[in-house]
Simulated scan of single mutants.
Amino acid sequence: MINQVYRLVSERQFEITYKDRSINSDHVIVRPTHLSICAADQRYYTGSRGKEALSEKLPMALIHEGIGEVVYDSKGEYQPGTKVVMIPNTPVEKDDYIAENYLRTSKFRSSGYDGFMQDYVFLERDRFVVLPEDVNSNVAAFTELITIAMHAITRFEKKAHNRRNTFGIWGDGNLGYITALLLKRKYKDSKIIVAGKTAFKLDNFSFVDEVYNINEIPENLKFDHAFECVGGIGSQYAINQIIDHIIPEGSISILGVSEYPVEINTRMLLEKGITMIGSSRSGYEDFKNTVDFLSENQIVVDYLETLIGSVNEVKTIQDIIDAFEKDLTTSWGKTVLEWKI
């Protein structure tokens, strides 16, 4: 069959390419239905990744957050219409110690490898997870982002000490919101503290115990462990503020991505015996755990609906451009695409 792929070829410019694919392969064919724009997609779309990165990775189909419906399975294991969340990480090897999302050989959709902006996506059988029939599709569209927080918490649980009375989360954006929400649900008896810089964003964190502006944090504020969800140059100030307030021998989970190196206070890092845990992307087990968790916690799904910034019907390439431009002006939440092209 001929599959249409909608690729970014240069800054703010998409073109359709055609790929001949066999329907009788071992892949399961999925038709995307709801996609979500990520900040990484925007860096490619606006050309802010830099000329060298763009020349290396373009042309490329964007989007690595999305769900779809099974169209065809040559083995008949999955019926047409089955709702699934698609997994962007694509490993080509296994390692006894290194997770699939940290293997340097793994491919990642919309990062040098075609993403989900296609008529049909051909997925291996471990590259999707079946969703409940009654799933909120607009929330499910950004499941991948939720798995980032789920993966970071899983790594934290394996590496940090067991005193978990108080957590600090730095970052008032989408990832900070999701991380705080999952922690509050997983550690119901723990105090969750959020620090950010934007008042109207912090207003959305009604489910946590304490909220602070980063410029008004009390000197006596203390917590056992922390999650940094800021990214960019701001992560430098967030990490150092966390180091100042964290109780000795706590852990700091780093989730924010920065394009450039940042400076941190290593003297106090050493004096306090702090453990830093880096987390990036996610894999099959994180998607499975996330889908199971959301299925069992409807209240979390209800809170996640707050993150739906806008829902945009996409039937043409111009609709794609309009959605990306709209996303650039959105100050809170996720931009969801109803993929009807």
Rank of each mutant, 00 (worst) to 15 (best):
A195I: 14
E157V: 11
N312M: 13
I321R: 13
N265H: 07
I277T: 10
I29H: 15
L202N: 09
H34M: 14
L270G: 08
L328F: 05
V300Y: 09
S74T: 10
F293Q: 14
P32C: 06
F200Y: 15
F108G: 00
T166A: 07
I153G: 06
S206R: 15
F287V: 03
T105Q: 00
F205E: 15
Y237K: 12
V71M: 08
R125H: 05
I63F: 03
Q236W: 03
R164F: 01
N312H: 13
F287Y: 09
I87L: 10
K51C: 05
L62S: 01
I192P: 05
A99R: 06
P88W: 06
I239V: 13
K315T: 14
F167P: 12
R21T: 12
L337M: 12
Y237C: 03
E69S: 07
S48P: 01
R125S: 04
Q42N: 00
V230F: 04
K159S: 14
V5K: 05
E56G: 03
G309D: 10
P132W: 07
N138G: 08
I321P: 14
K201D: 11
I252D: 02
Q298A: 13
Y284T: 05
G278Y: 07
N101T: 04
L269D: 05
L294M: 15
V135L: 07
I242Q: 13
K201T: 06
L183R: 12
S295D: 13
L8Q: 01
Y284H: 12
G115M: 01
D126E: 11
K272D: 00
